[in-house]
Design a protein around this nucleic acid. Structure first.
Length: 672
DNA sequence: TTGTCCCACTTTTTT
DNA sequence: AGTGGGACAA
């Protein structure tokens, strides 16, 4: 028989004699928040709807624990982005005092990464050493592709017809990654997610084995490996686990709805002894299923502990009631019932607007005009955001903003470190840090004239088996016909490896070497050169190549290309952001553009109910970012190349919303 | 073996 | 539209 624990009511809790706290918790928080903040030991799940003061609650709890004498170092906050971790600690420090800065925090990946680096002994047991390189997704895909070519090369002749069916690198990597994140076998992932490749399962499994072996041999880890290897180390090294459990007595995990099985397992290992784990999240805001998160996970969280308090935050402090009424309606149409009806005490007379325009330019012009008007009315640019489903949805708008001289920063979408030329530079640094890094070797060798895949492979083999090292480049001559370029390359790298210069100097030398290569490779050389120089500037800030590299891989600059290069950032700016990157943030005024069925939700999500539901939650997240004004815009009759369809309907998520919940507008051009 | 040209396909979203 | 891969010529 199961036990039911009767909890103290929050009234009783508040009536308890308060200790002598510096902060007046009872006055500054509502009952549910207070209950969460005062929660002491044992597991707890905080189900916090959008805008209900989730971050505030976490911040206050940190302060409260410290006021009660808990050592700041023994608190660990795992968050979704590095930004939100530092923001939280900053707020806590502001609220209480500098002690809060000593709280440990970061993303799962950065946390695992730093512990791995600090455990060389355990790494060696796994076949790695402390100077491993971190592969980002595209690097990892390149490795998979390399191996894929080897397998295909062998079997190609045998059955050329079936070659067509073999999954591409992206699909393969996705299978491996899902398998790691959901802690499932490769075969079962193929069966569930890629049934069309089921007959290829043995080859896919073989490839997976090769991939795992390759990474180990070359001292490489992808994002998933940071977590899986960390987990296997703490599982196999009891003394280390005990040490960590001892060190982190209080664990808080933010955005729990977006964690996956692997991350959940890590939380259990770390918090399994004290069970002082507090998870915070909202099932209605789960938007990372493509990374293995499942919104149901958060609901099963209590099952993993002997006791788990469940606290719901339902009062929204962010948005006005008209906005909430609309967002409540949007989420209530979901196929799965989320047991939540948010309410707000903020009245407000402005209704959300749903605006139809004839085409994309009109939509962009409308935004520009509205932004200018809002600014007249005294809404600062910092308080305005334009949210998009996918990064490229804002291209036209960006042109229009430039024309109108409205400064903006873009978050999400294509990132600085993902551009080819920056990856080239980084590859040079990577081989210095980890000479076994064959992917990077391959990348930089192919840049040289006269070096193709074949020659590159020869050189890499020689490096891997030790015939050639950075400082005895002349050995290269015995393998291939030596060449001026290669000698220069090796001398630059050898000099870097000698560690007589600082990181900035090394980076600039590599840039010098790379510059002529880049000039030949790209016709927009000038633009790219600027990026490369920006990178040089960034590199100067680092004390070691390794820390530069891990930051670039795990915690890269979030701004997209143009902004990193842009100077004078301190000015006020408008925010353009993907919805995924807007998570947890809020603005006075939010524009959600391209709310067109087929764009949002995208055509490709139409097939399965699960993906549509995820899109719906995404739409919900977007709308709940608005405090006072919400504009949803959509052009009409847009030809979609991808599907070959003409898109002519407003997004299904707001189709048929009654006039009582939103004002409808149609944009028309002014008559001359 | 490398380099070039052309065609097909692809694009979410992030660590 | 821009990349990646395959076919083919040098």
């Amino acid at each position: 028989m199961k036990k039911i624990v009767l909890k103290k009511s929050s009234a009783e809790e508040a009536a308890k004699p308060q200790k002598n706290y510096k902060i007046r918790y009872a006055d500054e928080l509502n009952a549910a928040q207070l209950e969460a903040v005062m929660h002491d030991t044992g597991a707890a799940l905080i189900v916090a709807g959008a805008g209900t003061g989730k971050t505030r609650t976490l911040v206050y709890r940190v302060a409260r624990l410290i006021e009660d004498g808990v050592a700041p170092e023994s608190i660990l906050i795992l968050t979704f982005t590095r930004k939100s971790a530092s923001e939280m600690l900053r707020r806590a420090a502001h609220l209480l005092d500098g002690r809060c800065e000593a709280v440990s925090g970061g993303t799962f990946h950065s946390f695992a990464h730093s512990l791995l680096r600090r455990s060389p002994r355990h790494l060696e047991a796994l076949g790695f050493n402390g100077s491993f390189s971190v592969l980002d997704q595209s690097d990892a895909e390149d490795v998979v592709n390399l191996l894929r070519a080897q397998i295909a090369g062998g079997s190609e002749k045998a059955d050329k017809n079936s070659k067509r069916r073999f999954p591409r690198k992206q699909a393969l990597f996705d299978i491996f990654s899902t398998s790691a994140n959901c802690v499932k076998t490769v075969a079962s992932v193929v069966k569930a997610e890629y049934p069309q490749y089921e007959q290829e399962t043995p080859a896919i499994e073989q490839l997976h084995g090769l991939y795992v072996g390759y990474k180990r041999r070359h001292n490489l880890m992808d994002y998933d490996d940071l977590l899986t290897h960390f987990l296997s180390i703490i599982r196999s090294a009891p003394e280390m686990k005990r040490d960590l459990q001892q060190r982190y007595r209080y664990i808080m995990v933010d955005e729990y709805q977006d964690t996956n099985q692997l991350q959940h397992d890590i939380v259990l290992e770390l918090g399994g002894y004290h069970e002082n784990v507090m998870a915070v999240g909202d099932d209605a805001q789960s938007i990372y299923s493509f990374r293995g998160a499942n919104f149901e996970n958060i609901m099963h969280f209590p099952d993993s502990f002997r006791h788990c308090a469940v606290i719901k935050l339902e009062e929204n402090f962010r948005s006005t009631q008209p906005i909430l009424s609309l967002t409540n309606e949007i989420i209530s149409r979901a196929a799965f019932g989320y047991q939540k009806e948010l309410y707000s005490r903020k009245s407000g007379s402005t209704m959300p607007a749903i605006i139809r325009t004839d085409n994309e330019q009109e939509q962009s012009q409308l935004i520009v005009q509205q932004v200018l008007e809002l600014r007249e009315q005294g809404v600062p640019l910092d308080e305005i955001a334009v949210l998009v489903r996918s990064g490229f949805h804002s291209f036209d708008l960006e042109l229009e903003l430039n024309r109108a001289n409205i400064p903006y920063q873009k978050f999400g979408g294509f990132k600085f470190v993902e551009t080819a030329h920056i990856k080239d530079i980084i590859a040079h640094l990577r081989v210095v840090a980890n000479p076994k890094d064959a992917v990077s070797w391959n990348r930089i060798l192919l840049l040289l004239e006269g070096v193709g895949p074949r020659t590159a492979a020869k050189i890499i083999d020689a490096i891997t088996d030790g015939t050639v090292t950075l400082d005895n480049a002349h050995n290269v001559g015995s393998i291939i016909k030596s060449d001026e370029n290669i000698r220069v390359l090796f001398s630059v790298l050898a000099k870097a490896a000698a560690q007589t210069q600082n990181v900035g100097e090394i980076a600039w030398q590599i840039i010098e070497f790379y510059r002529p290569l880049m000039k030949k490779k790209y016709d927009d050389y000038k633009k790219r050169l600027k990026d490369v120089e920006t990178f040089g500037g960034i590199a100067e800030r680092y004390r070691s190549i390794n820390s530069l590299l891990s930051d670039m891989a795990i915690d890269p600059p979030v701004e997209s290309v143009e902004d990193v290069a842009a100077t004078g950032k301190d000015d006020e700016f408008l925010t353009i952001s993907t919805i995924h990157s807007a998570k947890g943030l809020e603005w006075n005024t939010v524009f959600l553009i391209w709310a067109l069925d087929g764009r949002f939700p995208p055509v490709r999500s139409f097939d399965t109910p699960d993906t549509i539901e995820e899109e719906r939650r995404l739409f919900y997240v977007a709308c709940t970012r608005a405090k006072e004004r919400l504009f949803i815009t959509h052009p009409i009759n847009i030809f979609d190349r991808e599907s070959g369809m003409v898109l002519g309907k407003v997004s299904r998520f707001i189709e048929g919303i009654p006039d009582s919940l939103a004002d409808y507008f149609q944009v028309t051009q002014e008559e001359e």
